[in-house]
Every structure is written in C-alpha cells, then in structure tokens.
Measured scan of single mutants.
Amino acid sequence: MEVRTIKVFTTVDNINLHTQVVDMSMTYGQQFGPTYLDGADVTKIKPHNSHEGKTFYVLPNDDTLRVEAFEYYHTTDPSFLGRYMSALNHTKKWKYPQVNGLTSIKWADNNCYLATALLTLQQIELKFNPPALQDAYYRARAGEAANFCALILAYCNKTVGELGDVRETMSYLFQHANLDSCKRVLNVVCKTCGQQQTTLKGVEAVMYMGTLSYEQFKKGVQIPCTCGKQATKYLVQQESPFVMMSAPPAQYELKHGTFTCASEYTGNYQCGHYKHITSKETLYCIDGALLTKSSEYKGPITDVFYKENSYTTTIK
C-alpha cells in the first residue's frame, strides 16, 4: 500500500517557510505537534488534498525554529505562539472599519479597549522592536488589523473576551517599542525636605499616572512627601515624541487643539466601556464603527496623549 502524501510549508514567522512532505494517514499533531492554519487549530486533523502548498504555523520545537521565533517575536515564552494563534482565530472574524481616516474595530468580545489602543497607536510616533509587531502594525494602518490585535493580546497575556485596560495595554506595548531616546527629568520640591531631581528613561519617561493635564504637570502637581507634608512635583525636561497622561476616570474637559487623542471610560472596574476622542479640525468621538463630532467635550476621561518633541522648564 502506497503512502499518500502532500507537500506543505511549516513556519513560526510566515517569513521562513520549511518544506514538509506530510503523510495523509496521520494527523498534523502526530507529525508536527500543535499546528495552526489561519489561526485555526488543526492539530487533530489529517492532511487533505486542499492543504497542498498551504502554510501551517507550528510551535518552535527545534533550534532553527526557536531562533526564527525569537528573532521575529522577541520572546522565548513557549506558550506565546499558541496564544497568538488562538487569538487570531477570533480577531480574523472582527470587522476593521476605516473611521475618520483611522483603522478602528467594530465592537465584539469586549474589544473596546483594543480599538482605543489601536486608534491611539496610529496617532503617536512609535516604532516597535519585534519585527512581528512592526509588520502587523503597518498592515493594521492599511486596514488589516487582525494579526496586530492578536499579537497585542498575546504580548499582554490576554484572551479574547476578557476586559482590558488601555493604560495597561499601552504599557505592555511600550515595553516592546523603541523608547531608548526618551528621557524625563522631574523635580520634587518640599518646604521641609528641599528639592530632589529624578531622571527617568524609556517607558517611565512617557507615562504618568495622577493627572490628565500635561500643562498642569509642567506647572506642578501636589504629591505627598515622605515627611508627610505636601510637596510639588513638576516637569523639568521632556525628550520624547509623545507623552501619555493618565488618571482614574473623572469628568474632564478636553479643549480642541490642546491634545492629540484621549480615552474615555464609562462604567466601573468590573464592567465598563471605552471610547476614543481625537482632536482634528474639530473633536471626534470614535466608538467602534461609530463616529460623532463636537466642538467641545466633557466626560469621564482616563488617558490623554500629547505630541511632544523637546521641553525644558522655565521655572527657576
């Protein structure tokens, strides 16, 4: 009895394709271990004539594949690729409408935090270190965002349907971005203890939790000093293409032309909904596939993004 075979390709990165001759009487799992086709788990399936010449994702289970996976995804987590594939199996079914010149995501599976993050990423200057993220990001900007969303979920250790947080998501993504040249110098002034300067680099240099107003941050924000008295913390120097200011959701007025974009969060910790506000020729609110415009805006804002380049204080 002759062994019926077909020729397929296996890959971990969709760049390096490895030619395989597979036995049609055995499952993919018996031949390769966990195997995925377009995100779908085909591990328990036997090869079919229609699979001839198709590319299958496999887990990096030998040295060659491990090197290829690390170079593309910059992670050695053995569960990463499987999590990416199972997320992709959902995100490829989502709709990605162009809204006001940006790629958004039609609401499904509690994905409003991903839509808000995706919209924000198209408006701030950011370059990702893992080629996987950078490639998928370019495709997302062009309207094909399924891979990018699935990668975000995998890097953030999230599953489809789980509630997510924009600030946490951005923080994970910033860790995989090139923020080497970003720098922030802060000064804390206390009447009792004097003053202390701190220099922050990388992710810490672009994120701040405690106030939404970048102007206020430049002037000074009140913080408790270690001595128990009130101290003032203010920005001395900022070198970065953008800054992200966050605070627990509270009524906040966004003035046209003073910011790049913002995240609105309605609801409580267990259950809520994100919308995205962007400042173009007027203010726009993007909620999944829905767009509304207004000249002014007041609502429960939790993150505001500002364009920056270089700032030095005039406070002496």
Rank of each mutant, 00 (worst) to 15 (best):
residue 277 I to R: 05
residue 297 Y to D: 06
residue 212 L to C: 12
residue 203 V to A: 14
residue 20 Q to G: 09
residue 124 I to E: 03
residue 51 H to W: 02
residue 179 L to A: 02
residue 235 L to R: 04
residue 187 N to H: 13
residue 77 D to E: 10
residue 53 G to R: 10
residue 58 V to M: 07
residue 21 V to Q: 06
residue 214 Y to Q: 06
residue 205 A to K: 03
residue 178 N to K: 12
residue 124 I to N: 05
residue 304 V to M: 07
residue 125 E to Q: 15
residue 230 Q to Y: 15
residue 124 I to S: 04
residue 177 A to T: 04
residue 153 L to Q: 03
residue 38 D to S: 13
residue 40 A to N: 10
residue 46 K to P: 10
residue 251 Q to S: 09
residue 271 C to Q: 13
residue 116 T to A: 09
residue 142 A to N: 12
residue 65 L to A: 10
residue 41 D to Q: 10
residue 308 E to R: 05
residue 143 G to Y: 00
residue 221 V to C: 07
residue 262 A to F: 01
residue 194 G to S: 01
residue 280 K to V: 07
residue 133 L to Q: 01
residue 47 P to L: 00
residue 79 S to I: 06
residue 266 T to E: 15
residue 266 T to Q: 07
residue 113 Y to N: 02
residue 303 D to W: 01
residue 37 L to A: 11
residue 180 D to P: 02
residue 231 A to D: 04
residue 261 C to W: 00
residue 285 C to P: 05
residue 87 A to S: 09
residue 56 F to M: 09
residue 67 V to T: 12
residue 191 K to H: 09
residue 3 V to P: 10
residue 41 D to M: 07
residue 97 P to L: 09
residue 53 G to K: 13
residue 35 T to N: 01
residue 312 T to I: 15
residue 149 C to T: 08
residue 312 T to H: 13
residue 72 Y to M: 14
residue 210 G to Q: 08
residue 57 Y to T: 12
residue 62 D to S: 09
residue 292 T to M: 13
residue 74 H to S: 12
residue 302 T to E: 05
residue 174 F to R: 01
residue 84 Y to C: 00
residue 238 Q to Y: 02
residue 306 Y to N: 05
residue 286 I to K: 05
residue 82 G to F: 11
residue 161 G to S: 02
residue 256 H to T: 14
residue 124 I to K: 04
residue 22 V to F: 02
residue 57 Y to L: 12
residue 5 T to S: 12
residue 59 L to A: 06
residue 110 N to V: 01
residue 245 M to A: 05
residue 13 D to L: 03
residue 112 C to D: 15
residue 189 V to C: 15
residue 9 F to L: 11
residue 8 V to S: 01
residue 74 H to G: 09
residue 194 G to W: 04
residue 296 E to I: 14
residue 36 Y to L: 01
residue 205 A to F: 01
residue 153 L to C: 04
residue 103 T to H: 05
residue 49 N to I: 11
residue 248 P to I: 14
residue 45 I to W: 15
residue 250 A to D: 09
residue 151 L to I: 01
residue 239 E to N: 13
residue 262 A to M: 03
residue 225 C to W: 02
residue 163 L to D: 09
residue 40 A to G: 14
residue 285 C to Q: 09
residue 96 Y to W: 02
residue 194 G to I: 00
residue 165 D to F: 00
residue 193 C to E: 02
residue 220 G to K: 04
residue 298 K to D: 03
residue 196 Q to F: 13
residue 254 L to T: 03
residue 140 A to E: 04
residue 5 T to F: 15
residue 267 G to D: 13
residue 275 K to Q: 00
residue 125 E to K: 09
residue 124 I to R: 04
residue 264 E to D: 07
residue 228 G to T: 04
residue 306 Y to Q: 06
residue 202 G to K: 06
residue 199 T to G: 06
residue 247 A to W: 04
residue 210 G to R: 07
residue 189 V to S: 14
residue 162 E to I: 06
residue 41 D to T: 09
residue 280 K to R: 14
residue 313 T to A: 15
residue 9 F to T: 06
residue 22 V to N: 00
residue 62 D to V: 09
residue 258 T to M: 15
residue 145 A to S: 03
residue 92 K to P: 02
residue 91 T to Y: 04
residue 167 R to P: 04
residue 238 Q to E: 04
residue 148 F to G: 00
residue 143 G to K: 02
residue 257 G to F: 01
residue 194 G to K: 03
residue 217 F to H: 05
residue 3 V to S: 12
residue 228 G to H: 05
residue 186 L to R: 04
residue 76 T to N: 04
residue 18 H to G: 05
residue 94 W to V: 01
residue 299 G to E: 04
residue 52 E to G: 13
residue 289 A to M: 10
residue 171 S to K: 14
residue 90 H to N: 11
residue 57 Y to W: 15
residue 74 H to P: 00
residue 19 T to V: 12
residue 141 R to M: 14
residue 5 T to Q: 08
residue 216 Q to W: 03
residue 205 A to G: 04
residue 14 N to A: 10
residue 207 M to F: 07
residue 287 D to I: 00
residue 281 E to V: 02
residue 26 M to V: 11
residue 115 A to W: 01
residue 291 L to Q: 08
residue 303 D to F: 00
residue 216 Q to V: 09
residue 173 L to Q: 01
residue 68 E to Q: 13
residue 126 L to F: 13
residue 141 R to Q: 14
residue 303 D to L: 04
residue 159 T to E: 12
residue 93 K to Q: 15
residue 168 E to F: 00
residue 272 G to D: 03
residue 45 I to F: 11
residue 167 R to S: 08
residue 254 L to G: 04
residue 113 Y to S: 02
residue 166 V to S: 07
residue 96 Y to A: 02
residue 145 A to Y: 05
residue 185 V to M: 07
residue 242 F to V: 06
residue 65 L to V: 08
residue 183 K to N: 08
residue 103 T to I: 15
residue 112 C to N: 07
residue 101 G to L: 01
residue 99 V to E: 15
residue 143 G to L: 00
residue 58 V to W: 00
residue 191 K to V: 08
residue 203 V to M: 15
residue 211 T to W: 02
residue 27 T to D: 15
residue 6 I to D: 00
residue 103 T to K: 01
residue 274 Y to S: 03
residue 161 G to Q: 06
residue 108 A to I: 05
residue 235 L to S: 04
residue 61 N to W: 13
residue 178 N to L: 09
residue 154 A to S: 07
residue 34 P to W: 09
residue 254 L to W: 04
residue 12 V to K: 13
residue 12 V to M: 11
residue 9 F to W: 09
residue 33 G to P: 06
residue 111 N to W: 00
residue 62 D to N: 09
residue 193 C to H: 06
residue 121 L to R: 02
residue 209 M to W: 10
residue 133 L to E: 01
residue 182 C to R: 07
residue 33 G to R: 10
residue 292 T to F: 14
residue 221 V to H: 05
residue 84 Y to H: 03
residue 282 T to I: 10
residue 274 Y to W: 15
residue 176 H to M: 12
residue 179 L to H: 07
residue 24 M to R: 15
residue 47 P to A: 08
residue 134 Q to R: 11
residue 299 G to N: 06
residue 283 L to R: 05
residue 259 F to Y: 06
residue 17 L to A: 00
residue 49 N to T: 11
residue 316 K to Y: 10
residue 287 D to C: 00
residue 98 Q to V: 09
residue 9 F to Y: 06
residue 35 T to M: 11
residue 9 F to M: 11
residue 156 C to T: 09
residue 296 E to S: 13
residue 111 N to F: 05
residue 125 E to H: 10
residue 105 I to S: 05
residue 300 P to Q: 14
residue 7 K to S: 14
residue 183 K to T: 10
residue 105 I to T: 01
residue 310 S to P: 12
residue 41 D to L: 08
residue 207 M to T: 08
residue 167 R to W: 15
residue 241 P to H: 09
residue 29 G to N: 11
residue 84 Y to Q: 03
residue 166 V to K: 01
residue 266 T to C: 15
residue 207 M to G: 07
residue 127 K to V: 09
residue 153 L to I: 13
residue 309 N to F: 08
residue 25 S to G: 15
residue 242 F to I: 06
residue 7 K to G: 10
residue 288 G to L: 01
residue 219 K to C: 15
residue 270 Q to M: 14
residue 280 K to D: 00
residue 218 K to D: 02
residue 100 N to Y: 08
residue 71 E to D: 12
residue 105 I to W: 01
residue 303 D to R: 02
residue 148 F to M: 11
residue 34 P to T: 13
residue 315 I to A: 15
residue 231 A to H: 06
